[in-house]
């Protein structure tokens, strides 16, 4: 594993000058993934924040080959690139080793792109799919997605006089991907560079489909101060709302266990989207969410336990 001094000395493959918001977590994810992947990498991006801010013609922030075609098909698009690679290698027309990476937001991954992702994984392409998960449709203006947590205020599930934000829990995409029985699945976070880069490195060393679900704080959609993006990522992990773990060779491994688990309210408090949940009249909802988080974390510890006993 490269240390941070080595990583920052490399040529920037995702450059500055893009149009992302101040404090954007998505571009941190893209930059750190490419630091590990290196120049022999082809990236497909789903329509979304990352694609829009990085490729406004005639400029591009990508110093590696990049393709965007549509919203719901980053996995299918990169699978086509990888298929051509296999064909050319077999025909003796190409001999470099290439990493194939797709980036999609949570809308493009949990929702509209889930079929395409599932298909590409089932077909066994040698690809790494990275979901930069900011828990809503941020590019179109903070609409609820399948990744939006219960209670969050979004523009299509707003907090009103009667309703209190999103009424449903988010789907557990990481577990859905684990159910594909694929070689590598992980959760990581923008704000822990070591965790993300080491997972990308491990993923790229494995043949076959890989998936990393990266929680990516979004100052605009979550409504917090832009300078605390990375702290927000770490806080999510410390509150166990976003555990860092891997699923490799059929086994769970939690890659970070907080020494002192923080209450969910501490994770909520810097964020405008959860502000209403901290009001006394909504305490019951807060307690329910805390119970869900506790339950998920306990279950994850149990899932990991058999491996530790061996």
């Amino acid at each position: 594993m490269a240390n941070i001094k080595e990583l920052v000395k490399q040529k920037e493959l995702f450059t500055g000058g893009h149009r992302a918001c101040t404090g954007c977590g998505a571009v941190i994810v893209a930059r750190q993934v490419l630091m590990v992947a290196g120049p022999n990498t082809v990236v497909a991006g789903a329509t979304g924040c990352l694609e829009v801010v990085s490729t406004i013609f005639p400029y591009t922030a990508w110093n590696i080959p990049f393709i965007h075609s549509a919203f719901e098909n980053a996995a299918a698009t990169i699978s086509g690139v990888e298929a051509l690679y296999k064909s050319w290698v077999r025909q003796g027309k190409y001999n470099k080793k290439i990493n194939f990476i797709a980036f999609g937001g949570d809308g493009g991954t949990y929702d509209i792109g889930l079929q395409s992702l599932s298909g590409a994984v089932e077909r066994g392409h040698n690809i790494l799919y990275v979901c930069y998960n900011n828990e809503a449709y941020m590019n179109t203006g903070v609409q609820r997605s399948g990744a939006t947590p219960k209670g969050a205020d979004t523009t299509t599930a707003p907090v009103g006089k009667v309703r209190k934000g999103k009424e449903q829990s988010r789907k557990n995409l990481t577990e859905i991907m684990i159910a594909h029985d694929m070689p590598y699945v992980a959760q990581s976070v923008a704000g822990n560079w070591r965790d993300l880069t080491s997972k990308v490195e491990k993923a790229l060393s494995i043949e076959g489909p890989k998936f990393i679900n990266v929680l990516q704080p979004c100052m605009l959609g979550w409504s917090y101060k832009p300078e605390i993006t990375c702290q927000m990522g770490r806080l999510a992990v410390d509150a166990c709302v976003w555990p860092l773990y891997e699923f490799v060779n059929g086994r769970y491994k939690i890659t970070y266990k907080p020494k002192q688990k923080k209450p969910v309210s501490e994770w909520f408090s810097p964020q405008g989207r959860f502000r209403h949940l901290l009001k006394p009249e909504n305490k019951q909802m807060l307690d329910e969410i805390q119970a869900q988080v506790d339950n998920f974390w306990e279950n994850l510890l149990k899932k990991e336990a058999p491996a530790q006993n061996q």
Binding site: S69, N73, A76, T77, G80, A120
Partner: peptide
Amino acid sequence: EFVPVESEHSAMSACIGASAA
């Protein structure tokens, strides 16, 4: 390389990726 995709949308998406490649 034959890619037996899960929909026609993905068929054309994969064709686009492979052609652009």
